[in-house]
Design a protein around this nucleic acid. Structure first.
Lengths: 127, 127
DNA sequence: GTAACTACTTACCAAAAGTATACCAGTATA
DNA sequence: TATACTGGTATACTTTTGGTAAGTAGTTAC
């Protein structure tokens, strides 16, 4: 088989396509863990330090107890969040990021940074 | 009012809380645009260059025509994607990132990078 | 003639996601 | 005594999301 210009182009395209496919796989794996209305918000709040259940609920505005406990359970299963029960009266429960959970900080920061720019853009447009 | 140690701590806490609240706003604004099973995948594919409708559908595996056209319309409304109709026979339609859409590259890259690490972690565990 | 290509749209339906409300037990506060 | 705090759970409900299947219209290839 001769190496024509077309062959070169096809090779490049094939490499591009598989790079894209691999990235798509990775994105899906990340989103599996982060999907939903609340997960990233909860994680972001916890980057500011450990929080109790009700503290989290207040700080992440608008989330119901049911959703919060469900999302926290899923984050715990995926080892992003650690749950600690304290023998106080009444019982207090603390949630904090695990070391693994902290590795999400760049993702969260980039998303928040883009969100800020986008927010300004929207506000400017509507004004 | 005296400036006690407690006052200092409360000031710090208040600053932290409002930083967190502002970040939460930004995250919500970003997610408003990116929410859904397919948006980030479509955007990621388009970072590799312009694509026609059917090309996109093939490359983003598993998406139906209905979802693809719906998601593309929303991305177009938010000015992340540009749609161009060519007078070929049959008609071909090309989709590409706008300059604004390209500003999402860091977000997508960070997400994909974390996803790759997470993927390896999962595979190692299940093995 | 019929199947397949282009890029979609529409109607309908199921499942997932999220909300609202009430409730539990124990303690502290007004 | 009534209220509110702790951290949730149970139930029922609505909303959102996404999928299936079919149809549209024009052109080309077998």
């Amino acid at each position: 088989m001769k190496t024509t210009a077309k062959t070169f182009k096809n090779n490049r395209l094939t490499r591009e396509r598989s790079a894209c496919a691999y990235k798509l796989l990775a994105i899906n794996d990340a989103l599996d863990v982060l999907r939903g209305k609340w997960k990233i918000q909860i994680l972001n709040t916890l980057t500011f330090g450990k929080r109790r259940f009700k503290e989290l609920q207040r700080e992440v505005g608008g989330i119901t107890a049911k959703m919060l406990s469900k999302e926290l359970r899923e984050l715990e299963i995926n080892e992003l969040v650690r749950r600690t029960v304290h023998n106080t009266i009444p019982v207090t429960v603390e949630y904090e990021l695990t070391d693994y959970g902290m590795t999400l900080d760049k993702v969260i920061d980039e998303l928040a940074e883009w969100g800020m720019k986008h927010r300004k853009r929207i506000i400017k447009k509507s004004a």
